[in-house]
């Protein structure tokens, strides 16, 4: 039981960290796409994947 609680808590922490990394990666992609499209004339960027 002790080990089970411990494993669940550690797994929860690791899943939360993995979620943070996933969102950070998506954010990095969105930012770099915005940068690529960063041309003059007020080009309206979006966050979509091509």
């Amino acid at each position: 039981m002790k080990t089970l609680v411990f494993v669940i808590v550690i797994a929860g922490a690791l899943i939360a960290i993995a979620s943070g990394i996933w969102v950070a990666t998506a954010l990095g992609n969105a930012i770099s796409r915005n940068k690529e499209r960063d041309v003059p004339e007020n080009s309206a960027s979006d966050l979509t994947e091509e």
Binding site: I17, G20, A24
Partner: peptide, 10 residues
Amino acid sequence: FAAFATLLPI
């Protein structure tokens, strides 16, 4: 989100 979802579990 990326900041707190990683740092608080760490």
